[in-house]
Design a binder for these strands. Structure first.
Lengths: 250, 250
DNA sequence: CCAAAAGTGTTGTTTCTACACCCATGA
DNA sequence: TCATGGGTGTAGAAACAACACTTTTGG
């Protein structure tokens, strides 16, 4: 029954959706000093996968990505970036693909979901605490630490890798933590994000000097903080400057 | 009649091609100290456009791009990079779009070519002198200086802009002239490519020092050269290193 | 009192930038 | 001989990397 709920929504949608194209979303969040990715699982298939969806026939592709993520996370105005298109035929013609379709009750090779798909990868940066995970019946949505991603459906592991490498190459332009961190945060959190994405440790002092010199951060008066040992200064992003920088990478 | 030749090839191909997806290619070449782009024109429509094509139903997307360019330029082993997917609905639903379809004799809104298309942008870097332009009847293919691109079909001007901005962001990793220049070349040619892509002049002496320090170039013994005034040293790319660097941006 | 993380500063190295001078050539 | 572009070098500024000492807090 649960199974029916989700599948019913898709199974006869070839009149609504653009065929042959899907949108895969790599949603990044930051919590508990770890970078996380939002993954999706359906009770009719054993592997986790990236949140994905389709484009309506008269819908801009970017709008489709916003719509898909709004539905999963409840968030408007997510920061989204389209980073790559994946068009290998193997992604659609594998045994795994046949398995999942069969579990969905689709054994007709001519069904629109059984056709070859090209998928467009978007990454999203969201504020973890604002995400309100929406689970349909028969569907699960959960944050995974970036170092603990299981083996995913199709080529989704490599899509994540590609997203990370694109973000890595964009970090010189835009502070990596913008959109990921809450309003106020200590510099150590920002540094951890950098370290995670770059995959190496950074010198705390040099990092501070560099990031402050970039002018994207505003030092706040509120010096308080609960955890750890010594209270740390809090910072905010200079939104105007950051948004301007984001524009430049579009 | 000429018109028929080209259009016949397309008009009934919905059984062969993946619907709703096209591939647009921005082909860069370098000649006469100018960066050039290869553009296509059909005699049934007044605007120039990027060389484009479609994906066969069982063909990898990258392979489709190779096939399309091989057909237009005669070249194998072109360097191709998929840089962005363009998915705005306006690209398919404009007046211009209706015009061109009507000129092709397609007045049926249900025709596969009249559907909404998402297009995947690839840029190619080719050695100008090796390109052997293939023109079908009713079709023209010509190099345009990058500063003299006319107003193109659909969003093709902005696709070129995007390609340039992607290349610009990749120049720190890989020497921009690799794949564009012939086997042997003087540094001034390479510098001009940099200047064109970056859109500003570079100090000749600093450029030389920096590019040589990067280790991607090999100084040749052949010091000779015909034009200009003083003969210049010729260089080659260290292919092994360059190819390795290219891998890293994929 | 001590471990852990924060704040602050110095120094030597590398890279970048902005220049100047001389050389070889064809017209 | 002269205008054009090639080859080479240097000095100051800026950015980077490596590193040490002190401070504040909770347990």
């Amino acid at each position: 029954m649960k199974k029916k709920n989700i599948i019913d929504k898709l199974i006869n949608r070839e009149v609504i959706y653009q065929q042959g194209i899907s949108i895969d979303c790599v949603v990044f969040g930051f919590h508990d000093r770890t970078l996380k990715i939002l993954l999706n699982k359906f009770n009719f298939f054993h592997k986790w996968m990236l949140p994905l969806g389709f484009i309506e026939k008269d819908e801009n592709m970017d709008d489709a990505a916003y719509r898909i993520l709004k539905k999963k996370t409840g968030l408007d105005n997510i920061y989204l970036y389209q980073f790559h298109a994946f068009g290998n035929t193997l992604r659609s013609k594998s045994q795994e693909q046949r398995d999942i379709l069969s579990k969905m009750g689709i054994d007709d090779g001519e069904h629109w979901l059984a056709q070859r798909f090209v998928s467009i990868g978007y990454y999203a940066l969201v504020e973890y605490s604002k995400v309100n995970i929406k689970t349909n019946a028969g569907e699960e949505l959960r944050w995974f630490n970036i170092n603990e991603i299981p083996s995913l459906y199709s080529d989704h592991n490599s899509i994540i890798e590609k997203a990370l490498s694109v973000i890595r190459s964009q970090m010189r332009i835009i502070p990596a933590g913008y959109k990921l961190l809450p309003e106020k945060f200590p510099l150590s959190e920002l540094r951890i994000i950098y370290e995670t994405i770059l995959g190496r440790e950074l010198d705390r002092r040099n990092f501070q000097r560099k990031i402050l010199a970039s002018g994207y951060l505003i030092k706040l008066d509120e010096i308080h903080r609960k955890t750890g040992r010594k209270p740390a200064t809090l910072f905010s992003f200079d939104k105007e400057k950051c948004d301007k920088a984001l524009q430049s990478i579009i």
